[in-house]
């Protein structure tokens, strides 16, 4: 456990020293939200109709944008090699990395999502649904993205491949996430959607660290 805390502390310190990494996904998220009405139609009734989908797609892409870097810098400076030949459990370290990634991408996205929702004239009852669905859905995006990141870390141009690997896994989260917001906007119960999002999260929380560790070993050792 103390190793997990030490790993978490290191990751948070690294993020704190690279503050631009935090701003990048957030800026992307906000830009999509600002540009979409300009490009399509500023009509409030239209925007409130597409809000749930657009906000969720923007959040998903913002997460995908930053997921590539989870293991990149550790691979480039040799830290990842040292982690692989450590006797300490690698899954703890990997989990600490994913948690940090989620904190700087998904968590902050969920926090600023009401602002974006306001720009899209999302009906007020849908706000809790939006925030909760993002809080439950984005950790899954980070976990699944980390699998793709670990698999492609040894490749020079992993960027395209990672989208191909990870996007199919993201689709269920997108469907249920956007569905939650839509149901919230129409005043329907959202518990069912949230239960599904939580189930996907628990499932990936159990299995993703194992897959990430295996993927890292494949990337480095072969």
């Amino acid at each position: 456990m103390s190793f997990f805390l030490a790993a978490l502390k290191r990751e948070l310190l690294l993020v704190f020293r690279h503050r631009s990494d935090i701003i990048n996904p957030l800026a992307f998220f906000l830009m999509v939200a600002v540009l979409f009405p300009l490009g399509v139609s500023p009509d409030p009734s239209f925007l409130s109709e597409v809000a749930s989908g657009v906000i969720w797609v923007a959040a998903l892409l913002a997460c995908l944008l930053s997921v590539d870097g989870i293991f990149r810098s550790d691979y480039q400076d040799g830290s990842l090699e040292q982690m692989l030949i450590s006797a300490e459990p690698l899954w703890m370290l990997v989990t600490a990395k994913v948690i940090t990634h989620w904190l700087v991408s998904g968590f902050f996205l969920a926090l600023i999502s009401p602002l974006v929702a306001m720009m899209f004239f999302l009906p007020e009852p849908a706000y809790p649904a939006l925030i909760i669905s993002l809080l439950l859905g984005t950790p899954t995006l980070s976990l699944m993205g980390a699998i793709g990141s670990a698999l492609t870390v040894g490749l020079r141009k992993g960027g395209v491949l990672i989208s191909l690997l990870v996007l199919p896994l993201y689709i269920p989260v997108l469907i249920f996430g956007a569905g939650t917001v839509q149901a919230g906007a129409m005043g329907l119960p959202i518990q069912g959607y949230l239960a599904l999002l939580a189930a996907i999260l628990v499932f990936s929380l159990m299995l993703a660290p194992i897959a990430i560790v295996a993927a890292l070993k494949i990337s480095i050792r072969s």
């Binding site: 690294l14 810098s73 480039q76 400076d77 040799g78 830290s79 090699e81 040292q82």
Partner: peptide, 14 residues
């Protein structure tokens, strides 16, 4: 075992 490779595993921002 202690391994020091080509890449020293030193993080630039720390």
């Amino acid at each position: 075992m202690l391994y020091v490779g080509h890449l020293s595993g030193v993080k630039g921002s720390l």
